[in-house]
Design a protein around this nucleic acid. Structure first.
Lengths: 188, 188
DNA sequence: GTCTATACGAGGATAGAC
DNA sequence: GTCTATCCTCGTATAGAC
């Protein structure tokens, strides 16, 4: 049973996909117009300016990721939580030509308004604090390696994951994310 | 004694700076025209198309970084080599609003021709293999932590550094790079 | 080498009819 | 809500004078 998407939802979905591919400055209302099948003026009806569109796109993307994080079984050992997270992150690659929307917008941040910067920061903070708690759990269990405090370790881990999707796409390979995960895992 | 830069050199320098700020799709010949003080048609004289310009920019940037790597004293302990490298990486941040050119172009890669992709890949490979040899040395000395083979550890380290400059700029802070370095350093 | 002039499509945005 | 029509600026690029 497939749900019909409203025009508004289609616009938002395609905007997210396009930005994960080419970034904020690399797509246009015309592109969306072609993909959705409505005129650009109709898109302006829903999203008066491009900045409005981006902000909503980030929020929708962010909400979806948060739902993904909350759906991870809290009873799992930390190592398995990290494996799940890495797999989630790998899915953002899509057909191998997309990267995390918020990683992309972090690259484009100097072209964007302050509101978007705050939304992207919030995304980073949420992911890093989720990872920090997983690392803390892993340290207790002895299943994950944590050097220093979990917070700074989590920032480094998240940065490594963002950098790895970038490199994965650059080299047309998927293996780089697994290298990262292995780095934090205690050898069995 | 200051060296006068040719117009060509000025164009290239400003192009690099602008791309480190806003990316490939975020700057124009007009921007360069204003900064250098020549008309856009003169820029086309030196660089017929924007792709030509980007390719030369990457090569110049890459060459400069390679010189930086070669100038690191081979006699240094691995830990100090890594510290030097991290510092070099931190300098790319400039006034806090720039990121590594090749990290930026990796984000923009789907808008760029194959030639540029290869140049950016070469930059990644060179940095990763330099880091791999430093990690190998550090493992021998016992000054750096290396999990698994040095090559995959180096890829993760490089990804973490790229991700960290991105986050540093996003949050207007410089400390994130040091977190990364500390992660690979054996506690004394 | 650098300029003026110009072409031409892309891109964001709005007014007003339906 | 969606369209047509239109505006105006930006962006890459070229031709040809100096």
């Amino acid at each position: 049973m497939e749900t019909k998407l409203t025009v508004r939802e289609q616009i938002l979905d395609h905007a997210i996909t396009l930005m994960m591919l080419r970034g904020y400055n690399g797509f246009s209302y015309r592109d969306l117009s072609t993909l959705v099948g409505v005129k650009t003026s109709s898109i302006h009806y829903y999203f008066p300016s491009k900045d409005d569109l981006v902000l909503e796109a980030v929020n929708q993307y962010s909400d979806a990721v948060m739902v993904g994080l909350q759906s991870v079984d809290p009873a799992l050992p930390a190592r398995d939580k990290l494996a799940t997270y890495t797999k989630l992150f790998g899915k953002t690659l899509g057909d191998g030509d997309q990267i995390c929307l918020c990683g992309m917008l972090a690259a484009d941040i100097e072209s964007l308004p302050e509101t978007v910067r705050q939304a992207v920061q919030a995304f980073f903070n949420a992911n890093e604090s989720w990872l920090a708690s997983v690392l803390a759990q892993g340290a207790k269990e002895g299943t994950l390696i944590v050097k220093g405090d979990p917070e700074s370790a989590a920032r480094t881990l998240f940065a490594a994951l963002q950098g790895s999707v970038l490199a994965s796409r650059l080299f047309h390979t998927k293996s780089r994310l697994e290298d990262v995960e292995a780095m934090w895992r205690v050898a069995r």
